[in-house]
Amino acid sequence: MISIKNLNVWFGQGDDRVHVLKDINLEVKAGESFGLVGESGSGKSTILRTALGLVDDWSGTICIDGIDTRNGDYKKLIRCAQMLFQDPYASLHPRFIVGDTIAEVMKINNIKNYEQRIIELLEAIGLTADHQYRYPHELSGGQRQRVALARSLALEPNVLLLDEPTSALDASIQAEMLNLLNEIKTRLGLTYMIVSHDIAVVSYMCDRLAVMSNGEVVETLSRGQLRGQDSKHDYTKQLISASQR
């Protein structure tokens, strides 16, 4: 479903050009939930951002559901893959009511009957039809992240790229959000790629994961290998022991 080959990414220009991702190769199967863990600055989010065309200076190939993300049809791509960002305070337009935020992507993509679809989406993510008239500042952090999720589901994608979907939320709200993400994944048959710095979250959510450090994938593990502490790399061991203290 997601195929990343020889991905290299650079930031900056001239003497300041920094090589931030080095030869990344990843394969994610349809219906799988794949995790990316690592410290901040290791390039986890950059992989997701590059996949959806938010980064310019890169080489290699990324295919999502058979669409080449560099040369393929961009409209098709965004209908197939959507992103959920970390910070629901920053990712929703403060002067748009919830309904308009969700409607915008559907209007751009000429989807008919979007009024009805807004209500379906809000109900699917555990809010009510009345929430479409609220502004983001009238919602809690967890509700805002649900609205952002409703927006990313509006185009009926097959793939969701989730960038730290719960790190801005309280533990109690995180539990609700993770349960919701799992339920929606099963119901809609989605494929997930989840970036998280929390290895416990990844162990709960993901079938397989890649551990990143300094712009490289140091190790790819299955959930079984992670839980059996069958990791070769010191950095992974450090992450595991830090989460178990």
Partner: peptide, 11 residues
């Protein structure tokens, strides 16, 4: 409500 590394995969 916190997930753990070796916890159950139930909701």
């Amino acid at each position: 409500c916190m997930p753990t590394l070796n916890g159950s995969l139930e909701p």
